[in-house]
Amino acid sequence: MLSVSGLIMQFGGLRAVDGLSFEAKTGDITAVIGPNGAGKTTVFNCITGFYRPSGGSIDLTHPGGASHKLHTMPGHRIASAAKVARTFQNIRLFAGMTVLENLLVAQHNTLMAATGFGVLAVLGLGRYRAAEAAGIEKAKFWLDAVGLTARADDPAGALPYGAQRRLEIARAMCIDPVLLCLDEPAAGLNPRESDELNQLLMRIRAGGCSLLLIEHDMGVVMRISDHIVVLDHGKKISDGPPAEIRNDPAVIAAYLGEGEEDEVPA
């Protein structure tokens, strides 16, 4: 599904990602872990087009066979054409818009196509009305999935933290992604919320969307991921199924060498 090879990201003198290669398989939950500053978020930013990689390639193959070279595509095309969705380490919702509006904005391209370049819809013609109803249905489905139906008309910025995290995931799912990239979705959640999150992620995977996950919470990672990539200082130090990673001396050394940092999500 996703194949990253030889990825390099250079910031001035700092090489945040240094020759990283890994694969994420269709239908898998692939976790990317590593100490703070290892370059995990930077990898996400390269995949989703926020940074242009200094070297290497990122290829995405859809289950249907279509393939995209993500390292050459502009950010918005990665979401709209390659169907890669993401969430952010520091939640980025449209705080002044309602929960429902957040989910409708995510369907912008689909809805926009139904407005006939805006002109017809402004005049109240065309099939926009039907398209919007369908959009609201989809929003309802995801609201239900993340348990926010009751708060659909509240501003996103007024939700509690855990709900904001879930809303961000629901919003990302509204673009119908084939790959969902989650940057520390469990950060700041209590154990119960964390469990609910696990179930939500399993449900998303069951729906046919592959996941790429950055997470510091080892409990979550070990329980739900099928495959783990470990980064340190921009390089891959280990790669394999959870059981293998748990016992990898290189991983243990990287974490122990960094002290307690893995418990302090930034």
């Binding site: 087009g49 950010g75 979401a79 969705a85 904005v105 995510a106 391209n109």
Partner: peptide, 10 residues
Amino acid sequence: EDEVACRSLG
């Protein structure tokens, strides 16, 4: 509200 989030939504 948030340009970066817009970009991530296509």
